[in-house]
Computed example of a mutant assay.
Amino acid sequence: MTWTDNNTCPVCEGTAKEALPKMGDFTEVICDHCGRFRITDSAVATFAHQEPITKMAALERARAIANETGDFPLIDSRP
């Protein structure tokens, strides 16, 4: 199952859409609440069993790393 099976944000579970066609092993998501970010396929699978606070923490970590590196926020399955 992928996050697009039901068009819900993998972080907040609100309505989301795919920003671009799938590229590699990640999807770029646009969510009204969470904003625009990328998430790997493995993180989507891991998130299916996580609490909302854990998901938001992963997004905040991805944003912090992106701010430091100048990259796009990418949520992966690293702890």
Score class of each variant (00 low, 15 high):
Met1Thr: 12
Trp3Val: 04
Trp3Pro: 09
Thr4Val: 12
Thr4Glu: 12
Thr4Arg: 03
Asp5Cys: 05
Asp5Leu: 10
Asp5Phe: 15
Asn6Tyr: 06
Asn7Trp: 13
Thr8Pro: 03
Cys9Ile: 07
Cys9Asp: 11
Cys9His: 13
Pro10Tyr: 04
Pro10Phe: 03
Pro10Leu: 13
Cys12Ser: 14
Cys12Phe: 14
Glu13Asn: 10
Glu13Pro: 03
Glu13His: 13
Gly14Asn: 10
Thr15Ser: 15
Thr15Phe: 01
Ala16Val: 10
Ala16Leu: 12
Ala16Asn: 10
Ala19Glu: 04
Ala19Thr: 00
Leu20Met: 11
Leu20Phe: 13
Leu20Thr: 09
Pro21Gly: 15
Pro21Cys: 11
Pro21Ile: 15
Pro21Met: 11
Lys22Ala: 10
Lys22Trp: 08
Met23Asn: 05
Met23Cys: 05
Gly24Met: 03
Asp25Leu: 03
Phe26Gln: 10
Glu28Phe: 02
Glu28Leu: 04
Glu28Asn: 02
Val29Gln: 05
Cys31Lys: 00
Asp32Ile: 05
His33Asp: 13
Cys34Val: 01
Gly35Leu: 13
Gly35Cys: 04
Phe37Arg: 14
Arg38Val: 09
Arg38Asp: 01
Ile39Ala: 05
Thr40Leu: 11
Thr40Ser: 11
Val44Trp: 04
Val44Lys: 15
Val44Cys: 03
Ala45Leu: 08
Ala45Glu: 10
Ala45Val: 03
Thr46Phe: 12
Phe47Lys: 02
Phe47Glu: 00
Phe47Ser: 05
Ala48Ile: 09
His49Met: 06
His49Gln: 11
Glu51Gly: 00
Glu51Tyr: 01
Pro52Gly: 06
Thr54Arg: 15
Thr54Tyr: 01
Thr54Val: 15
Thr54Pro: 05
Met56Asn: 11
Met56Ile: 09
Met56Cys: 08
Ala57Phe: 08
Ala57Glu: 09
Glu60Ser: 09
Arg61Cys: 07
Arg61Trp: 04
Arg61Pro: 07
Ala62Leu: 12
Ala62Gln: 02
Arg63Leu: 03
Arg63Ile: 01
Arg63Gln: 14
Arg63Phe: 10
Ile65Gly: 02
Ile65Asn: 05
Ile65Ala: 13
Ala66Val: 07
Ala66Lys: 05
Asn67Arg: 09
Asn67Ala: 12
Thr69Trp: 00
Gly70Ile: 15
Gly70Met: 13
Gly70Phe: 07
Phe72Ser: 01
Leu74Glu: 06
Ile75Thr: 09
Ile75Trp: 02
Asp76Glu: 06
Pro79Gly: 04
